[in-house]
């Protein structure tokens, strides 16, 4: 089990690094998909198959599709790639990488000292997740649902205002 975990973790770390460093936006997004899949594997190993499946369905399957959709619509050509390359100068990435290195050192030292039991906890199936969501955290779920409903209505409203002049002309054209 540990080897699988380390392989998945390594894949996740490397692909995430590539997401940050890659100059081609679409390729970077592809590495993000791989990163999400690796994280899903880790979730599965840690006894949360439901979260692993949701990670793949929602993040790797849906959110990244939207990202890709937008990137494809923007039609970034070789010019954008060159620009990205120009941005990857040492003085650009040296600050964030020092901060990242500090975080990494902290994590490693914590793990070294014997972290709280990470892997091998009790398995959390769909039933437990459902019970938690609609039992203990019912209020939070409903609040989140309200927030999403507000977002939905807002998006629909913005679209409608844009459409209005066109629909008016359409009604005029009708006999």
């Amino acid at each position: 089990m540990n080897t699988v975990f380390f392989i998945a973790a390594g894949v996740a770390v490397i692909s995430t690094l590539l997401v940050i460093c890659h100059s081609n936006a679409v390729h970077a997004l592809l590495y993000l998909i791989i990163s999400f899949s690796a994280v899903a594997v880790i979730f599965y190993l840690m006894g949360a198959p439901f979260v692993a499946a949701l990670e793949v369905i929602i993040y790797a399957g849906a959110i990244i599709v939207l990202f890709l959709f937008v990137v494809m619509m923007l039609n970034l050509g070789p010019v954008a790639t060159a620009q990205e390359k120009a941005w990857l100068q040492p003085r650009m990435w040296i600050g964030p990488s020092i901060l990242g290195a500090i975080l990494l050192a902290l994590t490693v030292s914590l793990l070294w000292r014997g972290a709280p039991t990470a892997a091998g906890g009790a398995e959390v199936g769909p039933r437990q997740v459902g019970a938690a969501l609609f039992g203990v955290y019912l209020l939070a779920v409903q609040l989140a649902a309200l927030l999403m409903l507000a977002g939905l209505v807002g998006a629909s409203h913005l679209r409608r205002r844009e459409l209005l002049p066109e629909s008016e002309t359409k009604t005029e054209l009708l006999p």
Partner: peptide
């Protein structure tokens, strides 16, 4: 869920 995830991939 696995099937749904694979089909979304």
């Amino acid at each position: 869920l696995l099937f749904l995830g694979l089909s979304s991939m």
